[in-house]
Simulated scan of single mutants.
Amino acid sequence: MRVMTYNIKTGGYDGSRGTRLEEIAEVIGTALPDVVALQELRGDSGTWLAKRLNMRMVRARSSWGQPVAVLTNPDWTVLAAGPVARPFHHAAARVVVATLGGPLTVISAHLHPHWGWRRLHEARWLVNAVGRTRLALVMGDLNTLDPWTDHQDRLRALPRQYRARHLRWRPPTSKPSDRDVGKVARVDTRAIAALDAAGMVDLFRAVGEGAPETAPTALGGAEFSGMRLDYLFATPALAEHVRSCRILRTAHADRASDHYPVVAEINI
């Protein structure tokens, strides 16, 4: 089984400049995934991509942000599907598919873009959604830096308003000064740490190949400075079957979104 997570940036729409949907479809189609977690859907972009790729879609709507979805290969049997019923800023969608190893729960999530304390709550909701499930995979744009890396240089490279998204020593309305940046203890990594503390396995950290950064692509983005924000987390029983995990960097991926997709191979 091949799985992918992909933030497609504003549903692939660029206003009067047209869409990037063909490029997005090319990136996904070339990778031949069985399951795709999509974030930042808009309008009918999810429906268009599902039809173009001949995949089935389960979409979770958002009251404040942008919908997410899980696309599945029609050859896989879907046992259950629907949104994760929590007040996420964006959304989370859950699909359970039948595999030879047993039912596999796949969750596509997009955590809060601005406030670390909200991301922490949302990460805990994801942990609760997984519960005692033996085979589960949480994929998506988690908008959080990991707790195992020194992020000082990449934070210094960000404009102040975007740097504040990843720091935690003041209320979210406060504006940090330049002298406040630089100490790892102040980087807000709590959402990723919560998934790790719950026993979930960061697949790229476990078996990743190549550079870990997922944003920005050549399409750019002032809010990024060479950051890993997109993750695949698996339960330990599922992680035992993961063969590889990599960031998909291609010419099409450079133009299709401001995030690169992450792909993993699971022998299940």
Rank of each mutant, 00 (worst) to 15 (best):
R249M: 06
F88S: 10
G29E: 05
S62N: 00
F233C: 08
A129S: 13
P83S: 10
V127R: 02
A25G: 15
V201D: 02
V84T: 02
R17S: 14
S177D: 12
V58H: 03
R61I: 07
M4Y: 04
W148S: 06
R17F: 08
P67N: 07
L142T: 03
R228F: 00
A81M: 04
T10S: 12
A264Y: 00
H90E: 08
L135Y: 12
L100N: 11
H89F: 15
A93H: 11
Y13V: 13
I28V: 15
R94C: 04
G210M: 08
R246T: 07
R86D: 07
W125Y: 14
P176D: 09
I8S: 02
Y162I: 05
G116K: 02
T10N: 13
L135I: 02
R170S: 11
D146E: 11
V187M: 02
G221E: 01
R20H: 11
R42H: 13
A50I: 03
A251L: 09
P87F: 07
V35I: 15
P172T: 03
K51A: 15
G18N: 14
L142S: 03
T10Q: 12
V201T: 10
L21R: 08
L158Q: 05
L126A: 08
F233W: 15
A69C: 09
V68A: 08
D141K: 03
A69P: 07
L142A: 05
G102V: 03
P159Q: 10
W125R: 12
L248S: 00
L167F: 10
